[in-house]
Design a protein around this nucleic acid. Structure first.
Lengths: 343, 343
DNA sequence: TTGTACGCGTTATCAA
DNA sequence: TTGATAACGCGTACAA
């Protein structure tokens, strides 16, 4: 009671301020705000008016201290990646109107595990971890404290849910498509971290393994080139492929960003789809642009995001058994893949 | 003292747990964590070991309650917008290694004011509001409680800082370029909310006003068409332009996303840059792709993001006078703008 | 150098 | 239907 009338205009109004203004108890205000059971109409009205007058807003941090939050967190490993933004948009859209917020934790410069933990420290009500790294045990431990969906990987767990595309099926769609067009020298451009290792369950490794197996089955020699995530880097790698001996007649890029780099290299060398076919993965918006017209695989990013959000809501609703969701990839055949040149 | 030995494995360890484990006081642990003054080496060591053993992590929410946070928040009005992700990446990069985090609040479905307030409720240490809406007074009030940078608008204030591109200069670069190529029927495609009103200070309105003025000065008639933010919508609007009477020989799109829709429409109608020139704004990555090769304006999104982050740090460091930063736009002339067709 | 005690704003429990 | 009270985890005066 040192200073009940301090200029409350500067200090943002708290729940206690509202209670004082309305002449009721803090507990009552809290109930009104949360729409809890057991408040008279008169109470609701008076409190509402006080909130209005004081321009009061509940402090999320204080709520978080009590354990409950209405915010989900999503980690974003690459901000510029259109596929990921599609996923995030799907999740945000699914949560619209449910009373749940979303915050994004970019993990471009930190490890994506760090991003997950940063979200956890903020007491989010649930986490969507997009393509997190190689520490499934840690993820498993964290999932004891929060509902967690791992998106984009195939590391199954008893504790968290999983959303992914069927990368094996998708990669096979592409390779079969190219083989069907008569291509034999099909190169695969993938991220540097991907490995042809049956243990690996990240999307790019799965695509790589599937590609290599399909090639060998067809009696063709796999030809793998690696690059970093950027279009730049893919462009450089593609130039190496095109300028090297035994130039491939088709290049399967592990995602659309890489494919754009390949297309750039192809164009710069004065080649067209009649010379070198190009296929990508993700079906980002720009892929269907008639000037690019990229053949690619649609793995329904928006559906992934929607599903992940729904899974978190289900967990909050009491579900305890893990769920696994896999989208069915669809090949989008466009102009960048053509029959193999004869000879 | 009801249950000092409860299975702490499930409940995440708190600062008090660490203190107990290390046999010291909570205050001591707090000091060690923050690297505060006045801790012996032995203390630091013991506490460090206990933190390690218990896998302790400070709760951001609890810290926030005390008023201090090391997190900046950025609102993102459109997740798919490449220019915005460039800005965000710039900010994140600038904060790398400073000990400050970033969280993103998507405002796609809510008003962007709502996103700002959601960040404020989380007690972030500073906010970058990207292109917030028409309520500068409210923004001004909020800026009394947190360091705030308004990015992308030109609403100056005594309370918050501003980062923007020089939209007038940029728009003039484009229009002068097109006029210089001999174009007279230059249409402008802009967002529906933009208005030719000297009072308006949002980027799209500024570009629109500048365009219209430059056209009239040149004795040409402005022709303005509107669309929503999406490439889809821009595509439809462009088709209307191309199919209408008195087809323009050049289209100036207010940003690159819209320009992509225009390019699609142009391609679909069997036209090329020789028939209809197209220019955009932002210089997103894909614009320089040889298959698109879009003439556009680079307004240095990464520099904007970096500057905004730096401004927040400066505010935290004690600066109180507002700063205004404006990037110098540069025209990137590429293949989509050509001399006006004769006749 | 270390520890004690309190307060931040909210919600849940329980009593009135 | 309402209100008093006790946490939640952390940082910080202040005392030891």
């Amino acid at each position: 009671m040192t200073d009940g009338s301090r200029p409350a205009s500067l200090r943002a109004a708290t729940l206690a301020d509202v209670a004082r203004e309305a002449g009721v108890s803090p507990a009552a205000v809290s109930k009104v705000i949360r729409g809890a059971y057991g408040v008279s109409d008169g109470m609701r009205e008076r409190v509402g008016a006080a909130i209005e007058r004081l321009d009061y807003r509940p402090r999320t941090a204080a709520r978080a201290m009590r354990g409950t939050t209405t915010t989900f967190g999503i980690t974003v490993p690459q901000l510029g990646n259109e596929f990921l933004t599609t996923v995030v948009r799907g999740a945000v859209a699914a949560l619209d109107g449910t009373g749940f917020d979303v915050i994004l934790a970019p993990s471009e410069f930190a490890s994506s595990m760090h991003a997950v933990e940063s979200l956890l420290d903020r007491q989010v009500a649930g986490i969507v971890a997009i393509a997190p790294p190689s520490d499934p045990e840690r993820l498993d431990r964290l999932a004891r404290h929060v509902p967690l969906v791992q998106l984009g990987g195939h590391q199954y767990s008893e504790r968290f849910d999983t959303v992914a595309g069927d990368d094996r099926a998708g990669a096979r769609l592409v390779v079969d498509h190219l083989l069907g067009l008569g291509h034999r020298r099909i190169a695969h451009l993938t991220r540097a971290y991907a490995a042809e290792d049956e243990q690996r369950v990240d999307p790019h490794s799965l695509r790589l393994v599937t590609y290599a197996a399909a090639m060998r089955t067809a009696g063709a020699e796999p030809q793998v080139t690696q690059s970093e995530a950027s279009e730049e880097s893919a462009h450089a790698a593609a130039l190496r492929l095109l300028d090297g001996a035994d130039r491939p007649t088709a290049i399967f890029a592990a995602n659309d960003t890489l494919a754009l780099g390949v297309l750039r290299a192809v164009a710069e060398r004065g080649l067209t789809a009649a010379d070198v076919s190009v296929a990508g993965y993700d079906d980002i918006d720009i892929a269907r642009h008639p000037l690019l017209d990229l053949t690619t695989v649609d793995q329904r990013g928006d559906e992934m995001g929607r599903t992940a959000a729904t899974m978190l809501l289900e967990r909050l609703d009491g579900r305890t058994e893990p769920r696994r969701f896999c989208t069915d990839p669809r090949l989008r055949v466009r102009g960048t893949t053509r029959p193999a040149p004869v000879g």
